[in-house]
Amino acid sequence: MPVTAVNTDTADLTMTVVGDFPAPVARLWRAFTDPRQLERFWGPPGWPATFTYFDFEVGGRARYEMTSPRGEKSRGAWEFLRIEPETGFEVLDGFVDEDGKATADMPSMRMTFEFTETAEGSRVTCVTTFPSEDALEQMLAMGAEEGSSMAFDQLAIVLSDLREYAQGKGTWTELLDDQHVRISRLIDGPRELVWRAHTEPELMRQWMLGPDGWRMTVCEIDTAPGGKYRYEWTPEEGVAGEPFGFDGESLLTERPRRMVSTEHMTGTDYPSTLNDLSLYEEDGATLVTVLIEYPDKETRDAVLATGMTDGMEASYARMERVLLG
């Protein structure tokens, strides 16, 4: 884990997060000062950030928004107070409305980022200073510590060469907490085609089949928010298994970057999950990430025990072979 320490000091009104990474200081600095890289990790899983403005100079400002799986937005702004290239910078961070005006009932915080060289690579130390104990408690209750740790975990991926990071992993599953699972797979192909493979029925029928011996008999999808979808599969003759299907509703679509939907097993009273699909392209390869929210730990464990990860790997391998080969 890249996060080596998270400390909250109620006397000093500070929260300190320290992360160590096997990358040089210059590379770590670029990740924090290039908005396209910064937005890949600054928002915690399920709330990815988009920096809409970034004027990186003393007195300059940056604006960002984080979007939940259901489309709610949390907006913030930075004012750059100090910049020392490849050493550190300091910002005043606060919540803003859609017009960029400070939100009166939310605190502003001073944040310092310091970058140092280590024997294994580099370290970033982020110190957030709050204006009052109430403000500190308010942000902790909103998950500030957990969100910062998750952001640093995502930074490790940003700092890695994508192909090198995913080499030989196939489809892998990470348990984030009792309700959230992150499933990832690198697809050797462009994001636009991978997006189409997830949204066009004629392409989906060719790869979204799980293990060999199954066929997709129903594939109906409307990706517009509020649109419905329905998929059904049946085994080929001589293959064990019973037909099954899923249905759900599209909640958020940002082509070709992100799509969020509910998922329910058709004909059952099983609770629905929330599936948050995101695609990121680097050097012609696309990282597919699915963040799944389950209603509880028992449902999470029951679904994973079905061999879902192996089935997804069979499908993604087929996508590369059939659509991108």
Rank of each mutant, 00 (worst) to 15 (best):
V194G: 11
D153Q: 11
C219H: 12
V127C: 01
P131G: 02
A141E: 14
P201M: 08
M150G: 11
T118D: 12
K101L: 09
Q154A: 14
P201Y: 01
E133L: 11
M208Y: 10
W214H: 01
W172T: 09
T118K: 05
A156N: 03
S184T: 13
S132E: 00
G147I: 07
A197Q: 00
T171L: 10
E164I: 15
M142P: 04
K169M: 13
T128E: 03
W207Y: 00
S184N: 15
I187Y: 04
L162W: 13
V218P: 06
F115S: 04
Q167C: 10
E220R: 10
E133M: 13
E90W: 09
S122K: 02
T129Y: 08
D105C: 05
L136S: 03
E220G: 06
T125Y: 01
E114Q: 08
A119R: 14
M150W: 12
T128R: 02
M106L: 15
A141P: 05
A151M: 13
F130Q: 02
L92V: 01
A197K: 00
T173P: 01
D93N: 08
G94F: 12
G100L: 10
C126K: 09
A166Y: 07
S148V: 03
L155I: 10
P107V: 06
I187E: 03
H198F: 05
M142W: 02
F113P: 00
S148E: 04
A224K: 12
L136Q: 04
S184L: 13
A102W: 15
R110E: 08
S149F: 10
M150C: 09
V218M: 12
L155G: 06
T103V: 14
S132Y: 01
S108P: 01
L155K: 11
E164W: 11
T171R: 10
Q138D: 15
G94P: 04
E192D: 04
F152Y: 12
V124P: 01
T217F: 10
F95A: 12
A135M: 09
Q138V: 11
D188I: 11
T217A: 00
I221D: 09
A151E: 05
A102E: 14
Q206Y: 02
E90L: 12
E220N: 10
G168F: 02
H180K: 14
P131N: 04
E133W: 07
D134E: 15
S132D: 06
D134G: 14
L159V: 11
Q138I: 11
A135H: 03
E202M: 13
R196N: 07
L140M: 14
Y165V: 07
V124A: 04
G100E: 06
A224S: 13
C219G: 02
S160M: 00
F152G: 12
H198Q: 05
S160C: 04
D178S: 14
L193I: 03
V96I: 09
M142D: 00
H180D: 07
F89N: 00
G210M: 03
A102P: 15
E98W: 02
I221M: 15
R163M: 10
M216F: 06
E133K: 13
T125K: 06
A135T: 09
R110I: 09
M216L: 15
K169L: 14
E174M: 14
D212A: 13
T223G: 12
E202A: 10
E164M: 06
T173A: 08
T112R: 13
I221T: 15
Q179E: 14
P107A: 04
C126L: 11
E174W: 08
T217V: 08
D212W: 07
